[in-house]
Simulated assay, not measured.
Amino acid sequence: MPSISKKGNNMPESPIRKLVPYSEKAHALGKTVYHLNIGQPDIKSPEIAMDAVKIHSLDVLAYSRSEGSHDYRVKIAEYYKGFGATQIEAEDIIVTTGGSEALLFAFGSIMDVDDEIIIPEPFYANYNGFSVASGVNIVPVISKIENNFALPPIEEFEKLISPKTKAILICNPGNPTGYLYSKEEIQKLAEIVKKHDLFLIADEVYREFIYDGKKFHSILQEKGIEQHAIVIDSVSKRYSMCGARIGYLVSKNKEVIKTALKYAQARLSPPTFAQIASEAALQTPAYYFEEVIKEYSHRRNLLIEELRKIEGIKIGVPNGAFYCIVELPIKNAEEFAKWLLSDFDVDGETVMLAPAAGFYSSPNEGLNQVRIAYVLNEESLIKSVNILKEALKVYKD
């Protein structure tokens, strides 16, 4: 019998999606499942984006350019200039099939097999998959829930740098923690990558989702690291358009863009209709985001307030994105999450959580933690936390 590749066997399952069969079985039994496991916003996509697809003049649904529509990239560059990234031009941007493809292009363009990339953990779970697919080794910098996942001193990164280190990757604000990097932290990271001649990759897809009056600082605003900086971006969460699968890779480094374009050519082009919708979305009025941020801020505050009523848990309070990590008074969050779906309900209702161990690369980290996405409405969030509270009263490891 033909064998599967070692790389294929080593590819990790998504901690966000691996419990789907349990959820489907719960649905089949007639249970209501509140999905706290995945960052699929329930906010409506901007009407201007949806209308652009409904009302189009295309006679042929043709390929676009491999790097994406020129007009669209010009408008993306204007978007970046709007928050201070004044040096970005259309030729510095490659439109990708989601932020995921942008990450794969970045990994493939700057790293060889067995090279190393330093990433603060917990981190977006698919970074593990991208590293396996690229043959790259993750070197983690561990942050702890006890201090709200604040980074250890930036200088700790330097201790991990080896001859194989090619890049530092951050998610800002963070998935799964909601951690927001300060301007000072970004500046320290900038100094490190300049000093050691590394790339600094910033996954900034949650840029708009910042709370408590705090300010976001992009690596594209940092002077002097233009040749080191690579930004990963996406329309998925910004415009509640996850199904569009449109992202960007952005860099002033011409060799990075030239190399990433080879990968883009190999997959031909990003989807045409999705680019039409995403280009129109750039005209979304400011009040849309004001309302969205107000709503997510309310949901975050409500979630934290309700969770704090549960005895024995720890909460990482997020300053951005729409996730938080919660440490539960149990031994194994994955087994607990399965049990919630297969063996527990409150009046026919239960919840689906994302076990947090999959957001670490270090073994035995996050085993009793879960990630909660607060993308549900107020009533559903309150019900979900109550179900969690009742479940913890009766669950036995």
Results as ranks from 00 to 15, higher is better:
Y34H: 09
Y34S: 01
H35M: 05
L36W: 00
L36C: 07
N37G: 05
N37D: 15
N37W: 07
I38W: 10
I38D: 12
I38Y: 11
G39K: 01
G39A: 09
Q40T: 08
Q40G: 04
Q40C: 03
P41I: 01
P41R: 01
P41V: 01
D42A: 03
D42P: 00
D42H: 06
D42F: 02
I43S: 05
I43M: 05
I43N: 02
I43T: 10
I43G: 00
I43A: 04
S45L: 00
S45P: 07
S45A: 15
P46W: 00
E47C: 00
E47W: 04
I48K: 04
I48W: 01
I48Y: 02
A49M: 01
A49Y: 00
M50A: 13
M50I: 15
M50Y: 01
M50K: 10
D51Q: 13
D51N: 14
A52R: 08
V53G: 04
V53D: 02
V53M: 11
V53A: 14
I55E: 14
I55H: 14
I55M: 12
I55L: 15
H56W: 05
H56Q: 15
H56T: 13
L58G: 05
L58Q: 11
V60D: 11
L61Y: 14
L61C: 10
A62N: 13
A62H: 13
Y63N: 15
Y63A: 13
Y63S: 14
S64C: 10
S64A: 12
R65F: 11
R65P: 04
R65H: 10
R65Y: 12
S66C: 08
S66E: 10
G68C: 06
G68E: 05
S69I: 04
S69C: 10
H70E: 13
H70D: 10
D71N: 11
D71A: 11
Y72C: 05
Y72W: 08
Y72S: 04
R73T: 04
R73A: 06
R73K: 13
V74N: 06
K75N: 12
I76V: 15
A77E: 04
E78A: 09
Y79E: 10
Y80P: 02
Y80A: 03
Y80C: 07
K81A: 11
K81E: 08
